[in-house]
C-alpha cells in the first residue's frame, strides 16, 4: 500500500528517477570497511561472508531476539523502491532497492513506549573487512535514527538491488536506506538493532563533530566545510556531466518535512 511513497516526491523530481545501471551502483561506493577509495569496495568486498547472517534485536523491545536472514526474507514483504541516493560528498545516484519497511520489523520486535531512538551496528570482522584494521573511523560503524524517522514509511531495510540479493559492496546482506538523508546514514551489513531512550552515538558525528551530525538530512542550504551542498553530480553522466540542483530532503520534502517542524535545520546541533 505504501509502495507508492517510494516513487513519490516533488513533481520536478519525478522525471529524474531513471535508475543508474547495476554496474554504476556497484562500482562507486563508500564502504570504509573495505578501504577509503570509491573503487575499494568493489575490489575487496567479495571477501565478506554473508551466510549465515542474523540481526540481534534488543533494547527497549518486548520481543528481543535474533532474526536470521531466512526469517527476515520469509516474514516481510519485499518490494521495490526506486530512491534517489545523495552522498554527503555531493554526488548522487538513483537506485532500485528491494526491501521492506523498517517499521514492520520494529513492530514485530514490539518497541516499548520509552524507546525514542533506534541504534544500528555493522558487522565487526577485521579479517574480512580490512579497513577495520586501521583506526580511520571508530569501528564497528554505528548509526541511529529518531523513532519517528525509523517508523516512517520511506525508511526501509534493503536486501537487494534490481531484484538481485544485495551486492557485498552495497552492504550485503541487509542495510538501512533513508532516502531523505545523506548516504552515510544508510548503515550497511547490519548485525544489531537496538531500541533506546537516548540518542545513540553515530560514527561520522564521532569522527568530525560539527561537520557530520546525527540528522544528516539532505539540505542544499547547509554547506559541508569543504564544499557547497547546493548542487550535486549524478554518477554516470560522464566527463562533461552537468551539476544539478540538490533538493531539500533530497526531493522527499512533502513526505518528511513535518518530522522536523520547529527545528532550525541550519543549527549545528541539528545538522
Amino acid at each position: 500500500g505504501a509502495s507508492l511513497l517510494g516513487v513519490a516526491g516533488r513533481a520536478h523530481a519525478q522525471e529524474e528517477l531513471e535508475p543508474n545501471s547495476l554496474e554504476e551502483i556497484t562500482s562507486y561506493n563508500n564502504f570504509y570497511e573495505f578501504g577509503t577509495s570509491k573503487t575499494d569496495p568493489k575490489k575487496y568486498a567479495d571477501q565478506l561472508t554473508t551466510e549465515p547472517w542474523s540481526i540481534e534485536v534488543d533494547g527497549l523491545v518486548d520481543n528481543p531476539g535474533r532474526f536470521s536472514m531466512e526469517d527476515i526474507l520469509s516474514q516481510f514483504d519485499i518490494e521495490e523502491r526506486i530512491y534517489r541516493m545523495r552522498c554527503v560528498e555531493a554526488w548522487s545516484m538513483v537506485i532500485p532497492w528491494n526491501g521492506f519497511e523498517l517499521a514492520d520489523l520494529l513492530s514485530v520486535a514490539g518497541v516499548q513506549d520509552e524507546a525514542k531512538f533506534v541504534a544500528f551496528q555493522t558487522l565487526m570482522r577485521p579479517e574480512e573487512m580490512p579497513g577495520q584494521q586501521y583506526p580511520i573511523l571508530e569501528w564497528p560503524y554505528v548509526e541511529g535514527l529518531r523513532m519517528d524517522e525509523a517508523m516512517h514509511p520511506l525508511t526501509i531495510m534493503a536486501t537487494g538491488i534490481y531484484g538481485e540479493p544485495m551486492p557485498n559492496q552495497n552492504g550485503a546482506p541487509i542495510r538501512l536506506v533513508v532516502p531523505w538523508k545523506y548516504g552515510f546514514k544508510g548503515i550497511k551489513s547490519i548485525v544489531r538493532i537496538t531500541a533506546l531512550a537516548e540518542q545513540p552515538p553515530t560514527t561520522w558525528a564521532l569522527a568530525a563533530p560539527g561537520v557530520y551530525g546525527f540528522y544528516a538530512n539532505v539540505n542544499p542550504n547547509v554547506d559541508h566545510p569543504n564544499w557547497s551542498q547546493a548542487t550535486e553530480r549524478r554518477v554516470g553522466g560522464g566527463l562533461f556531466s552537468k551539476r544539478r540542483d540538490t533538493l531539500m530532503f533530497n526531493g522527499y520534502e512533502d513526505e518528511v518535512a513535518s518530522l522536523y517542524e520547529g527545528m532550525d535545520l541550519t543549527a549545528t546541533e541539528n545538522i
Binding site: E23, E24, S27, Y28, K38, T39, W91, R233, V235, G236, G238, L239, S241
Partner: peptide, 14 residues
C-alpha cells in the same frame, strides 16, 4: 576518463 577507463565518476577520478 573520457572513454570509461577511470570508472563511472571520471571527473573526480581525473
Amino acid at each position: 576518463a573520457a572513454t570509461g577507463g577511470m570508472g563511472v565518476e571520471p571527473i573526480n577520478a581525473l
